[in-house]
Simulated scan of single mutants.
Amino acid sequence: MSTKQTASKNKLHPRNKHKSNYDFDLLCSLIPELKPYVFINQYNNQTIDFSNNQAVLLLNKSLLIANYGLSFWDIPSGSLCPPIPGRADYIHYLADLLKETNNNKIPHKEVINVLDIGTGANCIYPIIGASQYNWKFVGTDVNDPSITSAKNIVQQNNALFEKVEIRKQLSTHSIFSGVIKENEKFDLTLCNPPFHSSEKEATKGSQRKWNNLNKNKKPISNSQLNFGGTSNELWCQGGEMSFIHKMIKESRLFSSQILWFTCLVSKKEHIRPLQLTLKKANCVQVKVVKMEQGHKTNRFIAWSFLSPEQVNQWRDDRFNN
């Protein structure tokens, strides 16, 4: 890995397992199918072609087995295959968010309940959160193949079996309603929302990604541009802003059942309008957390309807009863 690439990885969260160079010898010993895709780059380091879907899939599989206690992981063809380091960063920064409202200590002994909106076929966030912090997860999705895949991952891994539950969201118009049970409480919600407003916009995004990864290669057809992701994972009417606005509106109905609502925000120009929407929704606490990942900065927005005093009461009720 080049000095530039190493510096980029060092920007990851301090507890992120992927801050160091990938040990491809170890990863290939765990998943031998990965070996043909590994090569020596111009900096004399082992790597893969990150524009190759199969290579990325096998890398993810090996990373999850090597670092998160899994014995099995696979996803259906065409499903979103996310970069593991970035997903891990979200989890670690969420742990820091809980730390702020837990006497500056990351809660490990207590049972932390997390709701993952749109868990997808990959089930990435529950895998990382359960392994790193022993959190319990409810993962939701509207897509039947994604539900089947996520349940299969949970059922085939003892490390997840008692920590992760997958629920079907029956309504495409709801986010929290229909999946949160009466009197059920969650310490966190997390979400990686669909960024694009249409299939056309998503295709343009894939073309940009291809161009960035393959600056010296010839253009390819739209059919070859799929980096993974079903329609509900990549786009929705109105795009990211519409989705998060709907999430904020609906979150008011569950203001006493959830400590922190959080959601990734892909574009920094969306932050200010979302903050104004949260203010109008009478949120008591709003935070924007930046995450340095590679050559870009990601962020998530977090909001709570509970005051610091009510948070203390929440902790007492959750952990002392």
Rank of each mutant, 00 (worst) to 15 (best):
G129C: 06
A121L: 06
K99C: 14
L94T: 00
K163L: 12
T140Q: 07
S177F: 14
S131D: 11
P82E: 07
L94D: 00
E100W: 01
I166P: 04
F176G: 00
H92A: 09
S77W: 10
K185A: 05
N113P: 00
I112Y: 00
T101I: 11
K168W: 08
S149L: 03
K109M: 11
P193C: 08
Y125S: 02
F137E: 02
G69D: 03
Y133F: 15
N192T: 05
R87I: 11
L98W: 03
S146H: 04
Y125E: 07
Y68L: 02
K136C: 11
N102S: 09
K168A: 14
I106V: 15
I91Q: 05
L188T: 11
L160V: 10
L80G: 05
F161P: 00
V114M: 05
T148R: 12
I84S: 03
V111I: 15
K163H: 13
H108T: 14
A130M: 01
N103D: 15
G78V: 11
G118M: 02
G120W: 01
I128P: 00
Y68K: 01
L94Q: 13
L70C: 09
K163N: 12
S131M: 04
P107F: 11
V179W: 02
K185D: 08
C191L: 04
W135T: 06
K105L: 14
A150P: 05
V111K: 15
N122L: 09
G86Y: 09
N104Q: 15
I106F: 10
N157G: 08
S77T: 14
T189G: 04
V154I: 14
G129R: 01
N183H: 14
D116L: 09
S177P: 04
N103G: 08
E184Q: 15
P107D: 10
Q132K: 14
N102K: 05
N104D: 15
A121R: 07
N143Y: 13
D144L: 15
N134K: 14
V142T: 15
E184N: 07
G78M: 10
Q132Y: 03
N152H: 09
E184R: 04
Y133I: 07
S171W: 09
T140W: 06
I75S: 02
K109F: 11
K136L: 08
K105H: 15
K99P: 07
Y93F: 15
G69Y: 10
L98A: 06
A66Y: 08
L94F: 10
F137P: 01
T148Q: 14
T148P: 01
N113W: 12
P82W: 01
